[in-house]
Design a protein around this nucleic acid. Structure first.
Lengths: 248, 248
DNA sequence: CCAAAAGTGTTCGAGATACACCCATGC
DNA sequence: GCATGGGTGTATCTCGAACACTTTTGG
């Protein structure tokens, strides 16, 4: 199925006389997959094997298929690049980028998705995931030319979104495994926000915020005193929010 | 310029063998223009003169042009539909919708933009704006079939975004004129949130939150005691936030 | 018994809430 | 002088910030 020149749309039929101007573009999805790696916030990147930006790093992504919805395309790319199914990963739409020259080969409109994942499984050789690797966000952002296309901007937007969402949503648990301790959860906040938090106040706040985490009767067994294990709660919004320390 | 079958993209050159599946779609922008009208939250809608959904209501919007960026397309549509230039209106990207069957005529991917405007000027006859009219959000959402395409969902997303943003950003001022009183600003919050707020506490909170509003030395002259006029401040985020009353 | 990590109690201050009154104009 | 709408003061409570000690395991 293709869109014909005669396709009309809403009120603006007056555009029919200027049809050559109407945009028909390739549609892609790109993924900002964030995870905690080596105690740092890291992003999944692929090394480009072909021009343009050959040898450079890029966000994983690809074209949307006919008869495929955008969220489905994002989930498919995620599975292809990481081998991880959507069930274990938080996936949400981030933003859409469509500047005319953002891809030197032609007009491509891309919708970026933000994924937050626990530590990822090792790349599987022979799959797309083999080309993928983790890079700390600091490294990825250090050089303005490190990332291909406008992916530096997309990554910046994704990181900012993630930082904001930790405040008012229970999304930090998406970085943890199925069961986690309060201290692990705290280290997620500290890593993503790049601050330190008071362990005492953090513990009280998390356990007293309804629906954030659910206690289990299991405990950890390593190091010092055993810690209680928790699972994700059912809240979608935190009341009260976990306020991020602000530089005043 | 068109995207050829041979166009390659990142790692997934393996798709070249499956090129017929790759999506090439029309790209559109749609606008959720919210304003305060008759003491209610209202949205700008256009009546469709052509099939499909002929006679139904739809969000204003149209196709992106070749060599046009998405924000530029949104600004252009806004000017065409309302006669208002972007300077006086807050405009931000909302989300992108690309379900295969969302437009019965073919594959159209649309990026929705959210606009918050002070009371709009009267529609200008002979322009696109003549077809536009304001409808309260309550009315627009009342009947699931009232809006064409997936515009009911887009509107719902836009209203939710606006409600959230009033909490932690100074965006409520976008609904006011250049100069406004604290009481006017309070009525914006009350209208968008559909609650009532304590005038005393509201006044103190707004005037003590740094960068929210800037006092002028002008006053209103009507009715009772003259009220001081304010202009928008320069803050982009509110500290502390204006917390919305929650139903517990 | 000592190291390592987890969990708890208390105080203090800022901000949210609730409520009653005085102020400045038009008529 | 009264109706209309604007602005201020004060008490109380909840929540976030700061801070020191006890608990439970492994070796």
């Amino acid at each position: 199925m293709t869109i014909t020149r005669r396709l009309s749309y809403r009120q603006d039929d007056d555009y029919d006389s200027a049809v050559p101007l109407r945009l028909n573009a390739a549609v892609a999805v790109d993924l900002v997959v964030l995870t905690i790696w080596q105690e740092r916030l890291a992003v999944l990147l692929v090394e480009r094997g072909v021009a343009p930006y050959r040898g450079g790093l890029a966000l994983p992504g690809g074209f949307v298929l006919e008869n495929e919805d955008l969220p489905a395309a994002a989930a498919r790319e995620l599975a292809e690049e990481t081998g991880v199914t959507v069930d274990h990963v938080h996936l949400e739409q981030l933003a859409t980028y469509g500047a005319p020259k953002r891809d030197p080969r032609g007009r491509v409109v891309t919708t970026a998705y933000l994924a937050l994942a626990p530590t990822l499984p090792e790349p599987v050789p022979g799959t797309d995931a083999a080309a993928a690797r983790l890079v700390t966000v600091t490294d990825a952002m250090s050089d303005p030319t490190r990332l291909a296309f406008d992916h530096r901007q997309i990554l910046a937007d994704g990181v900012e979104r993630a930082r904001d969402k930790l405040e008012y949503s229970p999304l930090a648990t998406a970085f943890c495994g199925n069961e986690f301790t309060i201290a692990e959860l705290r280290r997620v906040y500290e890593t993503v926000w790049d601050t330190t938090l008071d362990p005492r106040n953090f513990h009280r706040k998390v356990t007293s915020t309804a629906g954030f985490v659910t206690p289990t009767d299991r405990m950890t067994r390593q190091g010092g005193r055993p810690a209680q294990l928790f699972t994700r709660g059912d809240a979608r919004l935190l009341h009260p929010a976990m306020l991020r320390p602000r530089a005043d």
